[in-house]
């Protein structure tokens, strides 16, 4: 008796499933992609990889942590704010405190964001940019990649992340670290912002 009522209840659900999968197969033809990364205000991620003398850092953060808003800059003040932030983000030696004995120097930096196009290169790649964003985005992010060269990588035992001091809207940075010795993770906060290798 119980089984009977159960299967009766299942029938509409099964029907729904079938129709769903049918519509899914037609959707697939359009090759649309509906994947979205997480976007969590106050929360940033930092990836660090070290091999030999090379150290690469990749910082990803919602724009609100850095400039306090995520919409496209409208007023001159907002534009100024973005320019200042980008200027600061490019100074990796200010944001990341490597031990002096490791003799690290930044050799490359790249800031990528929905906001950079608006302030920096107005003409180039503008079209491409627009085609990427045919629908208005309510969220925006900053992606910064740094490359450092350390002459004495064995001396690299700690890394002090000063990010919180410059961008106080950031509450937490989740760090993934891959070095020649090991792989590990660290949760950084304004109270504990040092990574121990």
């Amino acid at each position: 008796m119980k089984n009977l009522s159960l299967s009766a209840g299942l029938a509409p659900a099964l029907f729904l499933l079938c129709s769903l999968s049918a519509s899914a197969s037609t959707e697939a033809d359009h090759d649309t992609q509906r994947q979205h990364g997480a976007h969590d205000h106050g929360h940033a991620t930092l990836n660090l990889v070290q091999e030999g003398k090379t150290i690469q850092l990749m910082l990803e953060s919602p724009a609100v942590n850095i400039i306090g808003f995520e919409h496209a800059a409208k007023t001159p003040q907002e534009k100024q704010k973005i320019e200042n932030a980008i200027e600061l983000l490019k100074q990796g030696e200010k944001l990341f405190g490597f031990p002096a004995s490791a003799q690290c120097a930044q050799i490359e930096v790249e800031v990528e964001s929905e906001h950079t196009e608006l302030t920096e290169h107005h003409d180039e790649s503008k079209e491409e940019h627009e085609s990427n964003h045919d629908e208005p985005e309510s969220h925006s992010e900053f992606e910064v990649s740094y490359q450092f060269v350390c002459d004495a990588p064995t001396k690299l035992d700690t890394l002090k992340v000063h990010f919180f001091e410059f961008f106080p809207l950031t509450e937490e940075i989740e760090a993934q670290l891959v070095t020649e010795k090991r792989q590990f993770a660290a949760e950084l906060s304004p109270q504990s912002s040092t990574i121990n290798f």
Partner: peptide, 18 residues
Amino acid sequence: QYKQEPLQAIIPGVALHE
């Protein structure tokens, strides 16, 4: 971000930490 299939790549040491 692989488009054709929802895949995931993890770094073993980082997942262990989690």
